[in-house]
Design a protein around this nucleic acid. Sequence first.
DNA 1: ACTTCCTTCAGTGTATACAAAAATACCGAT
DNA 2: ATCGGTATTTTTGTATACACTGAAGGAAGT
Lengths: 213, 213
Amino acid sequence: MRASDRAYAALRDDIIEWRLLPGTVLAEVEQSERLGVSRTPLREALSRLTAEGLTTAAGGRGVVVTDISLEDIDELFELRETLECKAAALAAERGDAALFLQIQKELLEAPDLISGADPARHDYYVLVGRLDEAIDAAISNSYLAQAMRSLRVHLVRVRRLAADDAARLTAAAAEHAAIAEAIAARNPRLAEAATTVHLHRSLSHVKATHTPH
Amino acid sequence: MRASDRAYAALRDDIIEWRLLPGTVLAEVEQSERLGVSRTPLREALSRLTAEGLTTAAGGRGVVVTDISLEDIDELFELRETLECKAAALAAERGDAALFLQIQKELLEAPDLISGADPARHDYYVLVGRLDEAIDAAISNSYLAQAMRSLRVHLVRVRRLAADDAARLTAAAAEHAAIAEAIAARNPRLAEAATTVHLHRSLSHVKATHTPH
DNA sequence: ACTTCCTTCAGTGTATACAAAAATACCGAT
DNA sequence: ATCGGTATTTTTGTATACACTGAAGGAAGT
């Protein structure tokens, strides 16, 4: 693995997991020493992060970790609704029904995963990730898929702000199952509606449990 | 201006204007000598281009100029319709009516610009660009605006494939005027519809006059 | 003649040295 | 005391040298 990839992955993780807080200046020498790589690959990592919007170039003063305000969350979900509703509708038109039926079945059993031993709910998030990937593949539109992927980076960051209690996760699993069901039923409008419902519930939950730092 | 910015702008222009054709491998030493910069800023430029999707990293063997197939154009317009329709609707809700009324007025006079002396129709494209910027500002959603900006790069590239005859440009100006009018009238659904119509006409024209290279 | 291995070379990935720009701190003047 | 200017210092921007990887071409053996 390239040094620039390691630096990118490490910084990205630190930002997403809120170990590097918004406003933190990422000085090149400092970070390159911390991560054990030279300045050259580190700069490439910072370039990629800036292109994704996780950091912002602060002219002459290095790059700083981008902030996410409450307005940002609203904007983020506005775009997310636009993209994911369209994606769900397209998936319903073009997707493989059997695959989504299978994912729906697993999602209906998700409460077992959530109440399980793992406090990080790793298996649950993997399952949700599989739904995302299935939709990405079904739409067969690389530009749309790319736009959604770049959004998800920011969304994972926001998710870390909310208290992911078991009750909310169980409800979210049911909402995801409804989306998968609608896609499997090849009903674009229903898939779109189910996505809208899910995203609004998610947004409400995030805003309700949002703990200002 | 930084050397990396110059290299980025030069390469981007060369790709958009089809002076660098799809499949061309951009070797670092070769391009750095051609553009008169060192390899370091050139690599940063290539990173940015790759992040935008204008080039693709071909593992270990430099980066190559990305191809745009007919399917890509369909996908591009599918995403474009999704984003710009939403943007038009939001602009109708949140925008400054007077500004869009002014732009509409100028667009109705656009035939004068199109039939003018400039074969590049510079003034016309500036005017259309002002409508885009006005919508970007009106939606007050930086994530959506960013997504549209990254799309426009690819769209300019596609536009160069089509024969921009005076007839089509005149019609397009009228369609743009209709969008501006709907936004000024604060009618989201009409703005969305006008955008849909415009994009479908654009796509038809591109596909009709597309000259395979 | 074909295949396989080795050599060589082109090209990227990384490190570091140097230059330029910007920010800060300090000093002087008003 | 505050404002302005200058000098210093820190940090980024650029160039270049070196290392490593992957590929292509040639030579030798079958």
